[in-house]
Nucleic acid binder design. Sequence first.
DNA 1: TCCATACTTCATGAAATAATGAATTGACGC
DNA 2: GCGTCAATTCATTATTTCATGAAGTATGGA
Lengths: 123, 123
Amino acid sequence: MDTYQALTAFAALSQPLRLEAFRLLIKAGPQGMAAGDIATALNAKANTTSQNLSHLAQAGLITSTRAGRSIIYRSNMDGLNALLRFMLEDCCGGAPEACAPVINMVAPCCGVTSNNSPKDLKS
Amino acid sequence: MDTYQALTAFAALSQPLRLEAFRLLIKAGPQGMAAGDIATALNAKANTTSQNLSHLAQAGLITSTRAGRSIIYRSNMDGLNALLRFMLEDCCGGAPEACAPVINMVAPCCGVTSNNSPKDLKS
DNA sequence: TCCATACTTCATGAAATAATGAATTGACGC
DNA sequence: GCGTCAATTCATTATTTCATGAAGTATGGA
């Protein structure tokens, strides 16, 4: 992920409706949600929601596929992953001793554990 | 971290100069950098840089302390950590099977390893 | 074919954001 | 105290972003 893509992703997540939509789609999981259901869930108008969803899609954070009359949106975990990696890139690459505490605090929420203390991270 | 704080942080990172400044400060590590040096490194004017740095500070992503005539800015790893947790909160809380692959791809860059396969994450 | 449903796209005006020059504050040396 | 350096704050202008209503596209059923 380059800087431009990261900027686009951060901009996409910096707007209330879009952030909520993204979180909603993560919670919805692989089955996703129809555009109309998203708008209903967020108490927003159809066209406003549509534009915001396309903003998230352009940022690579969600995907869309047509299913009959509906269009199903799904969170794109690869996009989220790329953004997380981008955020950690500098501390991992340039200052690993600063990065380790961050990742060690984040990881436990998903059942991931560390086998390294910060001192071990010289590479 | 609540939604408002997350929005502020994403907005702070959605602007080229601010994103670069933040990355620069992460690379700089605990010793930080003076405001003037940051402006020089980013080829930006002093006042523009100052305003952007205060934006990042308000978002909790960096801190500032005065040292003589200079003001030293440092990245705030706690702020970054909180933002990362916020981003993972929904998949960890609502859809852990979607979250695990993400964290497992991110973690290795900091020497953190997983002891769980996605199947294990029922909690 | 006609109509309704489900979304999207377009054009517009209002509001928020960003960069700039000028003025201001704070710290240091003389 | 005075001048200088380092940085911030202020006021202004240009640009971007956002939500809205109206119009357009695509799908499916009668």
